[in-house]
Design a protein around this nucleic acid. Structure first.
Lengths: 195, 195
DNA sequence: CCCAGTGATTAACAAAAGATAAGAAATAGT
DNA sequence: ACTATTTCTTATCTTTTGTTAATCACTGGG
């Protein structure tokens, strides 16, 4: 627990530096959680508005449309996992987060987080920076979807900093992330090989 | 100036209630700006990291790819206008904001905003809530692009709360917002008429 | 070592989108 | 009111994607 908490603290301090006192405001809110491959994180926990910090493993995050799962995001160690939008809005999440491998997480409730926002300017700032970080990622994602063709998006994924996705995630899920079908991704790969 | 400042205060107070004192922290940072139809807001101002509040008029926001403009967002009265991501990241903006009609704005620099974040927990919270608001919008946008077909996205635009876009924005720009060409949008409209 | 199950590829066809160009409709300016 | 521009629609053709189904490749369990 100590090690894992340290790893969380490091992640938080990429956004704001904490005093020991500030750090100890969060500590009692933390719980450990282990998930086996295939288990779900967000669905049942959606109404509890849980935020996770991924210590080990990979997860994916998908919407369900007409009974079909559409993967839209992946999580790796050292990053926060949450249907954050549903935490923010308070509305039930329409997405599911699934462990792609066995996972270890630290969790805390967004309700507790909100309390920290209230009592601490520093934690409030953390909240701002996390939301900004989210927005930056989403903006780039949206721009890619609007400006690039599926093939260009795949090339960008290959060449861009998202190596982990290529290395660790099955293609059927990557295709969802790119907004196309697995069949179409396979064709794109074939086309690129012939160049 | 007084009226317009009141309108800005109302917009801000949809996020946080301000005391008179807090409000007066922002007041001296405000400047009025008028743009004529076709004039640009963000491009030259990108490095100044200006944030605008739109009092009158409509604007659009577009990326330029291979010399072609791709519209991705619209602004209407009563809303904030900014390449906010570039304010946050400090990187120069790759997007341009253009007045679609004559416009009146109140502006302030993000540098000033940042100072308010430093000295006031309340303003910091405003920063968080703005970023969260941005993220919520972007997440929905991204999900729509990944989950819906162009036709479904157009129908959602027709039926959803974005009436202003349909009413006031030329189709050539709407098509960019939907991620398709103007020709394709015209065909979709034709298809829907025949149903 | 074989077999079942899953994931990836390939094939064939239908539907939709992009590109380009030409024509119709709407708008703005004089 | 008329012309000039711009915007929207329509048409044609090519490219790409979606869909469905069959095949191939890989993995893990017995």
């Amino acid at each position: 627990m100590l090690d894992s908490a340290t790893s969380l603290r490091t992640a938080i301090e990429r956004f704001v530096k904490l005093t020991q006192e500030e750090w100890e405001m969060l500590l009692p809110c933390l719980k450990e959680l282990e998930l086996q491959k295939g288990e779900l994180f967000a669905k049942e926990v959606a109404r509890a508005h849980l935020v996770g910090f991924l210590l080990e493993g990979n997860m994916r995050h998908f919407y369900t449309k007409d009974g079909v799962e559409q993967t839209t995001y992946f999580y790796f160690e050292g990053h926060f996992v949450s249907s954050y939008i549903s935490c923010i809005t308070g509305k039930p999440s329409e997405l599911t987060i699934e462990a792609l491998t066995d996972c270890k997480l630290l969790t805390f409730s967004y309700t507790d987080m909100r309390k920290l926002f209230d009592v601490s300017h520093k934690w409030e700032r953390f909240g701002r920076l996390i939301a900004e970080y989210l927005a930056i990622g989403l903006e780039e994602r949206m721009a890619d979807l609007l400006l690039l063709s599926p093939e260009e998006r795949y090339i960008k994924l290959l060449e861009g900093g998202k190596q982990k996705i290529i290395e660790r995630i099955p293609q059927q899920y990557i295709s969802g992330y790119l907004g196309i079908t697995p069949v179409s991704l396979s064709r794109i790969r074939q086309r690129l090989l012939k160049k």
